[in-house]
Amino acid sequence: MEFLDSISGKFNYWVYIVLMMIGLYAMISKNNLIKKLIGMSIFQTAIILFYVSIGVKDGATIPILRHDQVHHTHATEYHHEITEHTSTTVTHSTAAKEKHTESGPDEISINPDDFANPLPHVLMLTAIVVGVSTLGVGLAVTQKIYREFGSIEENEIIKKITSDQ
């Protein structure tokens, strides 16, 4: 029972490890190159699941400010803008404004626990892009191999390479 509780509390890690191992197994021991690529995609998806599940917070929403929060903050921000506009240099004015907003009352309205962690989302957005690129190049290489050897089975390709020499 204790074992089941330990699984259910950290279910996301179990799922990601199982998925990752399925992908790794397909990459290592499948003969077919397309199946290897499918394994690679499963592996990447497992990593994405891992990262995104780390960024989850209980009762939090997506990391986008709601319209009413935006409006409130924006109004005060604009007010600061006008009052600070007399400062000469741009950097000076932004630095002064940061100081101002830190102590401002509108800062309290944004509670970090209300929003999911945006950082894993950003990192995985780029990981998805790299995944698409590697999958595309992998498929292109597979197609080229098929054109060259007439097969995408690894053992048949090796047989052809060794018989040629």
């Binding site: 400010l65 935006v70 940061e98 945006p118 989302h121 957005l125």
Partner: peptide
């Protein structure tokens, strides 16, 4: 958790709109 309470992600959540006027933190 360490990933969620670390100051980088806290900074992005609380300061993004004040610094960039973009509500979508991602």
């Amino acid at each position: 958790s360490p990933a969620n309470s670390y100051q980088v992600s806290q900074h992005y959540i609380t300061k993004t709109f004040a610094e960039t006027s973009v509500p979508n933190m991602v």
